[in-house]
Amino acid sequence: MINNTLSRRAVLAGLAATFGASAAAASMPSGLDVQLAPTTASILLARLIQDGALPGANLELWRDPDQLRAAIIAHRCKLFTAPTNLPANLANRGLPVKLLAVIGMGHLMIVTADPSIHNFSDLVGKQVLEFFPHDMPDLVFRACAAMEGINPDKDMRLYAAGMPMEAAKMVASGQVDTALLSEPWASAAILAAAKRGRKLYRAVNLQDVWIQHMGGDGIPMLGVGIDAGLLEAAPDLPATLLAGLHQAKDWVLANPDSAAALAGQALKISPPVFTEALGHSQLVVKSARQARPGLEAFYQTLLKLSPGVLDGRLPDDDFYLGA
């Protein structure tokens, strides 16, 4: 059992020391603007904020990647959760963005109403709906398909929805039978379909496919990014946040009902959906530097498929924060 009080105190003390020590040397923003990805793993940063670890923080959910990019570029967002390729892309393009931690591994999966689908080979000739075309989910899907000897453009009828919510609604309602979804959208679709008497299956977990072919512990998919300017003002912040994220993860796993309630408030994910999604979301906390080998393998895979996704190269060494 986690001692919540000690956890909160530890984080508060660390942050207070950090901000207090640096406040004289550099001006800190009065309220930290934090943007969270609408995914299950964002609960860790939400927990930190709920616990008062980031006093005065303004919490907001970003609604599509472009919205987050705009906020980062305009320096309106100093701390965020996002797919790990997004901060890498911005950093490679010269923006002062660092990756603090990986907090969620691969949570993309094929959800289908067709019980005969168990692997990529079973998708041959079938209609498959993905989302965020040309972005990370599309690229990971293509990479995993290639690992399995499948060419999505030739071997299946691939369609794209603009957003995961659209894809989830389309598979839940029966407009399509098979879709690539991330969590919590996969869980949301399965539960929504069940209400209507429609059975959906988690047919293929791309994390499993990745591990089977690439080894390691899977796809370092969701990370915490930070504006470099914030580090100048509070150089100890990474270590403090990492400690808090570890404790937040322990709290979430030990208190799933409370975490679900928090998800309803902070992430706009209904508690039943969050509870269902939690078991499929692969929560982890690794510093970016710890996760670097896996991140670079992930980035290399994306670069092979689409060099522009990371401006054609791996991020520099100073992109990865933490010990």
Binding site: P38, L61, R63, D64, L129, E130, P133, H134, D135, D138, L139, R142, D153, L158, Y159, A160, A161, G162, M163, P164, M165, E166, A168, K169, M170, A172, S173, G174, Q175, V176, P184, W185, A188, A189, L191, A192, L267, K268, I269, S270, P272, V273, L305, S306, P307, G308, V309
Partner: peptide, 25 residues
């Protein structure tokens, strides 16, 4: 990025009416 173009689909009215219990996007 450089992947091939994939036909876009959008939800039908019936799909739009599906309540997922997830907001924020």
């Amino acid at each position: 990025y450089g992947t091939s173009n994939v036909p876009m689909l959008t939800p039908s009215a019936a799909s739009m009416d599906t309540d997922l219990g997830v907001g924020g996007m």
